[in-house]
Design a binder for these strands. Structure first.
Lengths: 230, 230
DNA sequence: TTAAGCAGGTGAACACTGTTCACCGATAAT
DNA sequence: ATTATCGGTGAACAGTGTTCACCTGCTTAA
């Protein structure tokens, strides 16, 4: 008997409908302008019904952030524009980080939810849920190691620190763009490329860095306390 | 007769009380966890009374952001840790940007409101209100020009682009820290110093940059549409 | 076949939010 | 002394996230 299976499929379908509706509304309306009632109306259910699938509005956000990481970290796509097309290790690095930046352009809402927004609390506990963020990091660390092995980056360089410094610059550009603080005639894409190459040039210079290495996840999402959100 | 003057002083005092209460609450509770009713309770007025001083909760935010820029751009303080103490122009640049980063540590809520948060709309119109942000930029541009004149940075460098690239790195670090996405054993301050010096090293390399120069304000606050806030 | 159980959906409510508005009372102007 | 003005108020409106008693229709056991 496939009754249980059908029930599970039904549940999955409604769950998907909620996430799809929420995603579309988030993209067009922005996270905190979207109410449970709006999502419910979209899928033609009562507001209370949603709480049978997600314990809170925050958890809908978490599920979407999870999807976002899966989207960004999709190994197939990474191999596509990183390994196949680009010959040298440093070009792979460039491609990988530009991909991350590109993600902030193509999926600004996802990106904001994953890396910027401080408006959703208590994910620090939800740690293991975002484990593949660590896989993404490992891929980048491997690429930096390959650069060092190929002599394209100094041997003194800590790979973890390197990817952090590369990331923050692009994160800054993305934030500047997302929060619309760029002048009308400024091009965030060119700025991102400049910052990326500038940081790479700095890394090549062999300048000693102060930051300690770490094995921790470089892109763990959301953990600011509720009391500090805005 | 000083009646009108007294009235103005009274208004100013209440207005200040509102801003003080709002600031303290924002710092401890976070912007969107603070309600008009909480502010009103703090100053022992009715919620409606606040609307006699500020047309909306957003405008309280604007007033505080204005204060934040005035705080960050305080010419006396800039001269203090920039011009007097530091000899070479490039050290002045370093000090100025470290000051900005330090501001993100000392006044995280102000900083978030001014540079990061996307939760408050429609300041793009409120442009002229934040004119001194442009003054801050001009100071930085002058410092970069001095670096170029002193031969510490390449003559081909566009000062406006230089300060942008320096800024985004530190902004990225600040965002990473503010949204608590740094690992427990990672030090944001060291990372900031690394990113700053790394970018400066890159700028010194004379690498040609793609970004166009601009005369626009580099730190205009808040302009993302309400429909994109989160 | 009938009775029991149960999961899923609902309407209504709770406790909040930002904001508006009719009113009221003290003060200032005439 | 009377009128006008202006600041502050309480109550309300429309919205929010969330909870809960209830009901209904399907599944399962007797």
């Amino acid at each position: 008997m496939g009754i249980k299976e059908r029930h599970e499929r039904d549940r999955e379908a409604v769950s998907r409908a909620i996430l799809d509706a929420a995603r579309e509304l988030f993209v067009t309306e922005g996270f905190h302008n979207v109410s449970i009632r709006k999502i419910a109306e979209r899928i033609e259910y009562s507001p209370a019904a949603i709480y049978g699938y997600f314990p809170s509005k925050d958890d809908i956000f978490y599920a979407l952030a999870e999807e976002g990481f899966r989207l960004l970290g999709d190994p197939a796509a990474i191999r596509e524009d990183g390994r196949v097309k680009n010959a040298t290790p440093v070009e792979r690095i460039r491609a990988a980080f530009l991909r991350m930046y590109q993600f902030s352009r193509e999926q600004p809402q996802y990106f904001a939810l994953m890396f910027v927004d401080r408006s959703v609390p208590r994910i620090s506990k939800e740690y293991e849920r975002f484990s593949f963020a660590r896989e993404i990091k490992q891929t980048l660390v491997d690429d930096v190691r390959a650069c060092i092995a190929a002599g394209e980056l100094p041997a003194t360089l800590n790979p973890v620190v390197a990817i952090r410094t590369l990331m923050v610059g692009l994160l800054g550009v993305a934030v500047l763009h997302l929060s619309d603080r760029l002048g009308p005639d400024e091009n965030p894409d060119l700025l991102a490329a400049d910052v990326l190459d500038l940081t790479l040039a700095g890394l090549r210079s062999g300048m000693p860095l102060r930051s300690p290495g770490t094995d921790d996840c470089p892109m763990e999402p959301q953990s600011i306390a509720d009391t500090h959100a805005s």
